[in-house]
């Protein structure tokens, strides 16, 4: 390691601490709000640490009593889970063959570029026909309809990630298997897919996070607990009609937990996925 002067080292540590504080302070505050008594959150001067820990809001939101506010919240949690899972699985199903095809046959690559270009379209540019189309198919306010729409966001993304993954798997391995008499599907199943498992898993995680985060389509295309997702449920809570700020914070913590846990536990895979595309261009 190169030599560093003491002031510079101190400077490094000081900025590192500052950065950690900037990242963590808002998140900690969200958690503290969720367990602070309501009166303390409107106290002046504001107290930064709860006198007593109040866990009742978690109980309230995760209640399963039929037709309660908690049940509605839990339903939206499950809807998010259902929509994100379905959309991710289907997105992988269409993007694995497509990505492999583009990776091995560059002649069709331009069509993937077209697909990826759709990312530039603002969702509002598609929303009116999608709304009318889903209405005709009776797919408004349905987790299936929403998952279908999400597919159009997830699939280009996973195809793009998977393509760079397949690019890294030597063609020679596939060719050798073919020489041994394996047909295309056997080759893909035995050779390519096992080697691509890490990148497929990463793509699945990204797709899931994207779907979990989506708000605009969910706001337009769902209307009640049959399909309403967590992001919409939280926006409803935050809409200025709930007087207990702690409850809003609690909902936020619960909605953030799955993606943040995924992020924290699988950060190595995520960072490599995030950066590989960026670095390779």
């Amino acid at each position: 390691m190169e030599h560093r002067s003491l002031p510079f080292t101190l400077f490094i540590y000081a900025t590192a601490l500052l950065l950690a504080a900037v990242i963590l302070a808002p998140l900690f505050w969200l958690m503290i709000m969720s367990v602070s008594p309501a009166t303390q959150l409107t106290a002046k001067p504001l107290q930064w640490w709860p006198e007593t820990f109040d866990w009742s809001r978690y109980q309230f939101l995760l209640s399963t009593v039929e037709n309660s506010a908690g049940a509605a919240f839990v339903a939206s949690l499950f809807n998010s889970l259902k929509v994100a899972t379905m959309a991710t699985l289907v997105a992988l199903a269409v993007s694995v063959p497509a990505a492999w095809a583009v990776s091995r046959t560059p002649a069709v690559g331009w069509s993937l570029s077209m697909v990826i270009l759709t990312y530039m379209l603002p969702p509002v540019a598609l929303s009116v026909p999608l709304f009318m189309g889903l209405a005709k198919l009776q797919l408004l306010n349905s987790v299936f309809g929403l998952a279908l729409v999400y597919l159009s966001i997830l699939a280009p993304f996973t195809t793009w990630l998977l393509k760079s993954g397949f690019d890294g798997i030597p063609r020679e391995l596939e060719a050798a298997a073919m020489m041994d008499g394996a047909n295309l599907f056997q080759t893909l199943r035995i050779i390519t897919l096992p080697l691509a498992t890490p990148v497929i898993a990463t793509s699945a995680l990204f797709a899931f996070l994207l779907a979990w985060d989506e708000f605009f389509y969910a706001l337009l295309f769902t209307s009640d607990l049959r399909a309403k997702t967590l992001t919409v449920a939280i926006a409803d809570l935050a809409g200025g009609r709930v007087s207990d700020y702690g409850l809003i914070a609690t909902a936020g913590v619960l909605a953030a937990l799955p993606p943040v846990l995924i992020g924290a536990l699988l950060q190595r895979a995520l960072i490599s996925g995030l950066t590989s595309g960026g670095v390779k261009g």
């Binding site: 709304f131 009318m132 889903l134 209405a135 009776q138 408004l140 306010n141 349905s142 337009l220 209307s223 049959r226």
Partner: peptide, 8 residues
């Protein structure tokens, strides 16, 4: 918005 949906 729910107007368009049969399941409104």
């Amino acid at each position: 918005l729910a107007q368009g949906s049969g399941g409104g």
